[in-house]
Nucleic acid binder design. Structure first.
Length: 199
DNA sequence: CCCTGATTCGC
DNA sequence: GCGAATCAGG
């Protein structure tokens, strides 16, 4: 496949929308995410607010690589130019902020001593969409036990730990987060939902 | 282990 | 210009 005008356009569009390189590659077909990233760079539209830490920041590690010598690049590369058109820098990522509330009054709960459990938010403070999503997720959850949790299983607890009706979501998490997407949605409120509260 | 983007360099 | 291989981070 070659980078036709249309394909480049779609690439630009999706990249601008914050789609990941792999998603774009999948959409385009016939290319890998590497190809997409490579193209993105060649097009000059690289940095976009991402959560990933691989910044275009200088990493003057003069240290020699033991692997195949990838060559050191001492040459200064002022790639980060000022945006020609004042770019508002769209930030699709929601800000974690501090939304999780640790209070769970109704759960007298004998929380098994161990890792601190994630907070169980009270329903009235979470967006309806997020709740609905969670509700659905809980039907399809893998219902794992504590022992079955791994680094990439959602650790959202469901039910009462004091009873047998207790399990962890267990759905796949993503990118280092402790929960699946749905539960991340209720665990990390972007903001809002919390305003007012007179006095 | 899953994912993300960044960089290099032979082609 | 292209993109696989590699790197670096969550």
């Amino acid at each position: 496949m070659s980078w036709t005008d249309e394909r480049v356009e779609l690439l630009k569009k999706m990249w601008g929308e914050g789609q990941s390189a792999s998603q774009i590659a999948k959409e385009l077909g016939g290319v890998t995410r590497n190809a997409v990233i490579g193209k993105v760079h060649r097009l000059g539209l690289s940095n976009r607010a991402t959560s990933s830490g691989a910044k275009a920041e200088a990493k003057p590690k003069a240290d020699a690589k033991p692997k195949a010598a990838p060559k050191a690049k001492p040459a200064a590369k002022p790639a980060a130019k000022a945006a020609p058109k004042a770019e508002p820098k769209p930030e699709p990522k929601t800000e974690p902020a501090v939304a999780a509330k640790p209070a769970q009054p109704l759960r007298k709960a004998i929380i098994p001593a161990g890792q601190p459990l994630p907070p169980q938010p009270s329903a009235n403070e979470i967006s309806p969409e997020a709740l609905a999503k969670v509700n659905e997720v809980e039907k399809t959850a893998k219902k794992l036990t504590l022992m079955e949790l791994t680094e990439r299983t959602c650790k959202w607890p469901v039910g009462d730990p004091a009873t047998s009706d207790f399990w962890f979501c267990g759905l796949p998490v993503q990118a280092g987060k402790p929960y699946c997407e749905a539960h991340v949605g209720v665990a990390f409120q972007p903001m809002s939902a919390r305003r007012d509260r007179k006095r």
